[in-house]
Design a protein around this nucleic acid. Structure first.
Lengths: 194, 194
DNA sequence: TAGCAGATCATAACACTGTTATCAAGTCTG
DNA sequence: CAGACTTGATAACAGTGTTATGATCTGCTA
């Protein structure tokens, strides 16, 4: 039955969104799906397969977030809108965000299929960013520009829920991140517009 | 015996440096220390206590790294030297770095004593950075400046061992990070030197 | 010094984890 | 219809952190 596979995936995704990776045990998933544990090994590759599916789900959400730029007046606005959506996504889907960045389950390493989706997400960001840069730039230069923005945004998001930054008020983070990202983006544009 | 406590800590630290958090089981530690598992509960607070000790060890290494600025000619050089050491530390002590940033063991949350050390590390970085800024700035502005540099450095370090950035050659990372950090630091200095 | 209280240790067990061997039942194909 | 393959469940294995039950050893007090 293909129905069982869907049931398992729904149960896993729900459980994951509710209680994060800690509540995601094989027995808990199967119990919620109304099946025995063995289905997770028939339809998926055990817990690895479940986490792979959620990892892919996470990066697909990232791609949707950074590309939701329908009403962007300029390429620059599109980048800023995408990064803003990225920040919101990280806050709204903490479990997925933590999973795709190595937190969650230390024993998990993404399969090649999963890492391919992650690479594609990076490529999409690179494509988005490259629209504000001269076309003549090499692929490497474009990737490095995209990486700069990603590192900045992810660095902030990662430090936001770290215990050492409690002195920074919670409400201030969004503005902090967006001003830093905007500054950096404009510096990138200026640097390459000589 | 205070000797047993030291034995356990050494065994845990060695085991952790060798095989990371995955190889760090209560039984493995006690076996290596030549004791039974119960000592970990008498002398520490179970595995939580062990991880707390390693977490604190990690942030102490961070503090030593960013403050090793003996031969710095200027405050600006001191900051850059500290950040350079930070990057090296993250590469050399991956286990500790991952632990203090939430990877390692998802069930672990640092105790108040541990988070205090983390906050102190952030304060030291703030102090280091504030030397390149006008004294008149508020504590909050100084913290935000330090946070910007930390987010940038940590964001890069965190993305460096992510599968999605395989297109960036491994040898390029150090230069990428340092140029980004330098650019950002100079922008900070210029912004406040009006 | 004698005796008792508390710290320190070991063994074994409990509840949980992911995984799999064994076997039963259903389904599809030649 | 018969056989092969997929799907399902039960129970067990090896691993995890933790703890209840004792035994031994240490150190303070009467």
């Amino acid at each position: 039955m293909v129905e069982s596979k869907a049931k398992i995936l729904i149960a896993a995704s729900d459980l994951f969104s509710e209680s994060g990776a800690s509540g995601l045990s094989v027995r808990a998933i199967s119990k919620r799906a109304g099946l025995s544990t063995i289905g997770i090994y028939n339809h998926f590759n055990g817990k690895q397969g479940i986490l792979d599916a959620l990892y892919i789900e996470g990066f697909q959400m990232v791609m949707r977030a950074i590309e939701a730029e329908d009403d962007a007046a300029s390429p620059r606005d599109a980048v800023l809108q995408g990064l803003s959506n990225y920040i919101d996504l990280a806050a709204r889907q903490r479990g997925h965000y933590q999973l795709i960045f190595g937190r969650g389950d230390p024993t998990y390493t993404p399969s090649s299929a999963a890492t391919a989706v992650g690479e594609e997400a990076f490529n999409r960001l690179t494509h988005l960013v490259s629209k504000v840069l001269p076309q003549a730039l090499s692929g490497r230069q474009k990737r490095e520009a995209a990486l700069q923005l990603w590192a900045l945004a992810h660095g902030y998001v990662s430090l936001q829920d770290h215990e050492a930054t409690e002195l920074i008020p919670n409400a201030a983070w969004r503005d902090l991140i967006m001003t830093a990202v905007t500054t950096h983006l404009d510096a990138l544009i200026a640097k390459h517009a000589i």
